[in-house]
Amino acid sequence: MKSPVSSVTRPDRYRDQVGFDKNYGFMKEFRIFTLLLIVTILGYSSCKTTKEETEDQYGKIRIHFEHRVDNQSLVTDQMIYENAAGNKYLVNEIQYFISDVTLYKNGNTHLLDAWDDIHYVDTDIESTRTFAIRDEIPLGHYDKISFTFGINEVKNQSLMFVNPPESLMFWPELLGGGYHYMKLNGKWLDTLDQISPFNFHLGIGQIYYSFPDSISSYVQNYFEVELVDSGFELQIGETLDVTMVMNVENWFKSPHIYDHNEWGGDIMQKQDAMRLGCENGWNVFTIEK
């Protein structure tokens, strides 16, 4: 970049070189200036056209999140659901992170929104239920969409979110730090016919030497979700709206039948329970276009 000093001294040097009458010089410079202006305007118009053409080669994607139980929209705080283990249950709220949304095209991958690659979803906060991905995505056919449920160990660092609501997802340092992948809070009818709260919370697991005082290692429970039938065609200038559906009942269904009576109300320190939950997560999400 030129310094301001050089831009001020340059005209003097120019005048010295040509050494002619000032007024004549002014008229000539005026013509040159006019010519330059025309060239600049033309150049700008040309650039603009090129840019518009370039923009047309891309599209955008916007993901909407929905939450359903047994193919019906989630109704919170009503004991109207029954899971695969036969537990009658209600859902109060669901909060979770997805990250590293990736598109697949001809065997190549395209990571979306690398600068904002972790998205928080909250059933109580409407604005979180849309993820408008900022990337301009090349046109064409894509084979599938995948994402990480939770946050991988490289990115899942404590204090990376300092503002609510994301910061309220923090996972205690002792238990591995970072953030909850998910809080699914609700209640179930237990074996004593009592309505008991459950906190189906997923995050970093712990392996204990002796429970609960001594931890020998941590388990990264995040997992990749490859969305079935998620191929799509992105058209010129299109913003593709896709709906990502969390089918809540599947957290408790397959391949493991998850029984609240077995695991109780809290599982953050029960890696076996979190493992079942995460392994059940493979078919929790479906996509609609």
Binding site: S158, L159, F161, P164, S167, L168, M169, F170, W171, P172, E173, L174, L175, G177, Y179, N199, H201, F211, P212, D266, I267, M268, Q269
Partner: peptide, 20 residues
Amino acid sequence: VLFTTEEGADCFHCHGGFGN
């Protein structure tokens, strides 16, 4: 430890901690 564990006093979900 008690403050920030579910098997302990489980205060942190409502009352924060290192991350809040």
